[in-house]
Design a protein around this nucleic acid. Structure first.
Lengths: 236, 236
DNA sequence: ATATAATAGATGTATATATGAGCAAGGAGG
DNA sequence: CCTCCTTGCTCATATATACATCTATTATAT
């Protein structure tokens, strides 16, 4: 474990456990150096991590101060700017998948461009309903190049494609580019998500990349608006 | 302008102008040191900025590589993880506001908690329709503590509250915590946003903070789903 | 008493340097 | 010819140091 990560986690846990009142000043960077036995730059990286997570603010010339947050917010914020697949996001809870489609097709021109492919290349075309504690909460439309994500089996789709990519294929997943919109469900989605009445869906369109920069996934996820939501922290 | 920012911008412009083919390797950090006449740590900060913006990936032992992106994506990505008010977001275009409500009330318990107030404190209660090029695209429900954001006038609401806070009150805005959901418009919203037929809205709930850590705004924005959308880059 | 100026203290930026870890190419040995 | 290992290159992490910039307090002058 990296030093600055360990210190950031320790500080975060202190804040989560309410050891600071809202607005209270943290120890000075110089003091933390002694406290943790590391250099000031390492302390700075740790505290900057907390800023990125939205827990504290730094004021040049004054010090670092805990934001005025409700307790429940603090836990969720640490996760806000990370990203992982469905299975990892709800790790520890009962997750399952219902496969509606699993074929190999040619991509459209738009998808081919996003995945850096030619239109006569092939991609997996997957539609899955993801269930959390037996409740359907999202329909995922996924396309992946067959050259890159080789040997995908129906069995893998039941669980987690991401862990297949990382553990079996040995790739590393680096990042995802997302856009979010609001849409209405199709009749099929209404049925699969067991929607009664009028309920909109949150559409998350995502292109995901390996750590060598190659895009490996184009996916559109339609979330039940009343179940899941997305959080983020933005810094000026 | 900071050195690492200037270098990051220069590199970003090179990428935007297509000086690199998708997947192409950037100059080595050591080479950039000579090229720009700065230390390696400064180069590293600049390149890390591009990683955060989603334009490149770094591979230890190999170098830095340009992601495979469509041209149009590159421009928008630089902005993705920033945040600004409505007026600043659409700077250069015609923006206007229609004020539906401007009152002073007691906050609910939930809002009071988020804004670190007591329920017998007072907050501004503002409802505005924001127009872009004369088209209504979002309804904003905003609450701000009157102790903090003092002297707010109807005239200010027509323009930009954020620039009033920064320029007139002299505060600095630091960050915002957001959650995003999908919702259906109310009959009023249907009218104000000139919605015909069935169209869902993107709901962005936001708590915004000053640079001293105090929350100064609780707002809920309902965006026409077909006009605006939100982008973000997530790193593992 | 008020306004201004000096000063101490805190974080920000940048450099130089050392060590660690992952990657790829090239050489030794079978 | 193929495999394994060494080696050098590249980025990652961490330290020490210097100077810049901003804040808040203290001291001084009016």
């Amino acid at each position: 474990m990296l030093k600055y990560e360990a210190i950031a986690r320790e500080l975060r846990e202190d804040i989560q456990q309410g050891k600071y009142t809202p607005g209270e000043q943290l120890a000075l960077e110089k003091e933390m150096c002694q406290q943790y036995g590391v250099s000031r730059i390492t302390i700075k990286r740790a505290v900057d991590e907390l800023v990125k997570q939205g827990l504290v603010v730094k004021r040049r010339g004054s010090g670092t101060f805990v934001k005025s947050l409700k307790d429940e917010d603090v836990k969720e914020l640490s996760m806000a700017n990370q990203f992982s697949g469905f299975a990892a996001t709800f790790k520890g809870r009962k997750v399952a998948s219902k496969i509606l489609k699993f074929e190999i097709i040619h991509p459209t021109a738009e998808v081919a461009a996003k995945l850096q492919l030619a239109v006569d290349d092939f991609v997996y075309d997957i539609i899955r309903v993801r269930l959390l504690d037996d409740q359907p909460i999202v329909v995922e439309y996924t396309q992946m190049p067959i050259q890159l994500i080789t040997g995908l089996k129906r069995q893998t789709l039941e669980k987690s494609i991401y862990s297949y990519i990382e553990e079996d294929l040995g790739y590393k997943i680096q990042s995802a580019h997302r856009t979010v919109r609001a849409v209405m469900p199709t009749p099929e989605e209404r049925e699969e998500l067991q929607i009664e009445g009028v309920l909109p869906l949150l559409e998350v369109t995502q292109v995901a990349f390996l750590d060598d920069g190659r895009p490996f996934e184009y996916s559109i996820a339609h979330h039940r608006g009343d179940c899941s939501n997305f959080r983020s922290v933005s810094i000026r």
